[in-house]
Amino acid sequence: MADDYDDDDDGPEVVKRFMFVNRKAPYGSIYALESLEVVLISAAFDQDVSVVFMDDGVFQIKKGHDTDGINMKNFSKTYRALDGYDVEKLYVEAESLAARGLTEEDLIVDVEVLSSSALSDLMNSQDVVISA
């Protein structure tokens, strides 16, 4: 399905800036997991991908998830694998992190922490924004 875009070593015909905005906590609902699946697929299309964690979405990348007791798949390590898919632009909104008593040290992946206003600038430079 990605053939139209990456069948040529000169690069894709169309490169759009895609931003995935994660605003939901993991496990309580399926959005975090299924949104991560979209990000992984997007990597196959050689687009310019950014992933944002804000509001309760910052809890998706909190270190130390242990889901043994809740019958659900622990997918938090997959965020670490994003790098291997060339998805390297991970951003966290500083205000969301602070409001939840978290710091960068609590996160399972390396991210760039942005103020609301810097994140707003970044969001306003995208071609496609997909949010959950």
């Binding site: 399905m1 759009k16 979209v38 299309f45 687009q47 496609v128 997909i130």
Partner: peptide, 21 residues
């Protein structure tokens, strides 16, 4: 029924992608 790639593809090809959820 098709793959998630169809979502990314429409994001690339359409002028606007609008989400409802």
């Amino acid at each position: 029924i098709s793959g998630l790639g169809q979502l990314i593809e429409v994001g690339i090809e359409a002028d606007r992608l609008v989400t409802f959820g």
